[in-house]
Structures are given as structure tokens and as C-alpha cells.
Amino acid sequence: MFWNLPYFTVVILTFIAILTILTKKNLVKVLLGINILESAVNLLIISIGYREGGVAPIFTLAPSTNMVLPTPQALVLTSIVIGVATSALLLSFTMVIYRKYGSVDVEKMRELRE
């Protein structure tokens, strides 16, 4: 039960994120929701790779061979880097939107429709 705690956290984070994305009107808050969703996935991947009582997967002078999986850590590192780039690009777009439209309300950001 206790070891399932990360998975419950993932589910809770996912729901918080989806609710944030769908209900908030402020673009920055929507972007925060996206970031929370990203963290939820990262947490899911990293907890998949965890083994009970495992040590870091470095073979040199390892105290035991019961190790956590190295691949999920590599995946999460990559996905965090991608997430940072994504957030940076999204926030810079938001900045220009604010400068041009004078608002970051998603309902005012609808010059393009139909």
C-alpha cells in the first residue's frame, strides 16, 4: 500500500492539472496546469523505475546489486529538459500575447475563430 503512494500522487496531480487547464481563464494558470501534468508524468516514470531498497545504478563500488532502473531516470531527465524548453517557449508567447492584446485571458484571445 505504502509503495503505491507515488501512483496515487500521479492520479491526484493529473486531475488537478486537467481541472486547472480546463477551468482557469488566465493563460499563465493554464500553462501552470500543463507543467503540473508534465510533473505527473515524470513522477509516474520515475516511480515505475524504483525498486524497494534499491541503490543508484552505478556499478563501481556498489554496495549491492539491487538497483533502481537507470532507463526511467534517463527518460525523465530528457523529458524535464523538453518540459523546460516547452515552458520557456509558451511563456514567451504569452508575453507577446500580453503585449499585443493587453490581456492574458483565454477568452479574449480569440481573434482566430470559425
Binding site: V106, M109, R113
Partner: peptide
């Protein structure tokens, strides 16, 4: 009207 143009 379904094509509201609102991202959410």
C-alpha cells in the same frame, strides 16, 4: 459557433 477560438 463550435469553433469558438478559445484554447480551453
Amino acid at each position: 459557433p463550435l469553433h469558438t477560438g478559445i484554447i480551453t
